[in-house]
């Protein structure tokens, strides 16, 4: 199996404001979000990062997407360093997260063209890709409707389509089904499986066990910024369900707070 992602001892700390210190009842000025994370992902697999809120999943994915820089360590996507070659990394990846939004004022058609231009996609390639993706998700009927006038589900579909406007080999999804109704969530998971079938690599973060069991090939369990388990989903769930495995690990690592 060919390795497409290599994460090497990634660390990230955030400075806490006085108010945050009071809220978290700590005197520490720094909060360690990611603490020496190392793992790899292989081409053509769906890799899940599973963990509770605040475990460091989103911070890890944001570092991989080059939105924020690690304090130390590095990650290589298709051989490009997120620290030293962020522009190259950005051209190779697709990134979808609830934090990234599209301007409500524009239509799906305009936004697809705009982001294609930012990625330097030639117009003939762009048009073919747009037609295929728009009809796949039923956006074609709403292609000229402003985003502000679309339903939440349709907006999410447009975001999904825009995130793969450059037909990336490596796609990062942060909590891809969060806040979606069951139908839209299914559309998203089906699309992830389709992308995998096309040979794309997907890394996603989630705290939904069923999503990991359903679509992930391998899973890394992350607690307090550290990777505490890493294996294939089949191997990890050999003896009991993922939920039970997770709580066992959590009890062991976090001292039974769950």
């Amino acid at each position: 199996m060919q390795e497409i992602l290599k994460v090497c001892d990634l660390k990230k700390q955030f400075r806490l404001s006085y108010r945050q210190q009071k809220l978290q009842r700590t005197n520490d000025r720094m909060l360690t979000a990611v603490d020496g994370l190392s793992f790899t992902a292989n081409r053509g697999e769906i890799f899940g990062l599973l963990g509770p809120n605040g475990a460091g999943k989103t911070t890890t994915l944001r570092m991989l997407a080059t939105l924020i820089a690690p304090d130390s360590g590095d990650a290589y996507i298709d051989g490009c360093s997120v620290v030293k070659q962020p522009d190259k990394v950005r051209s190779k990846i697709g990134f979808l997260t609830g934090e990234l939004r599209l301007e409500d004022f524009f239509t799906p058609n305009y936004l697809f063209d705009f982001f294609s231009e930012l990625y330097g996609v030639p117009s003939d390639v762009r048009d073919g890709r747009k037609n295929a993706l728009f009809s796949r998700f039923g956006i074609d009927k709403f292609a000229e409707v402003k985003l502000a006038n679309l339903s939440t589900g349709m907006k999410q579909k447009v975001s999904l389509v825009i995130s793969v406007v450059n037909d990336p080999e490596f796609i990062i999804f942060d909590e891809p089904t969060n806040g979606l109704d069951v139908l839209t969530a299914k559309t998203v998971t089906d699309f992830l499986l389709e992308l995998k079938a096309q040979g794309k690599t997907i890394i996603l973060s989630t705290h939904i066990f069923s999503l990991v069991e359903k679509i992930c090939d391998r899973v890394g369990i992350i607690i307090n910024g550290r990777l505490v388990a890493l294996d294939t989903v089949a191997e990890i769930t050999k003896e009991k369900g993922l939920e039970d495995v997770f709580f066992d690990i959590y009890a062991r690592v976090a001292g039974g707070e769950a």
Binding site: L67, R90, F95, R101, I162
Partner: peptide, 15 residues
């Protein structure tokens, strides 16, 4: 754009 999160969407592109 920063407030609405649309600037971050542009920052994640290779531009």
């Amino acid at each position: 754009e920063k407030e609405r999160g649309t600037l971050a969407t542009m920052l994640v592109t290779p531009v």
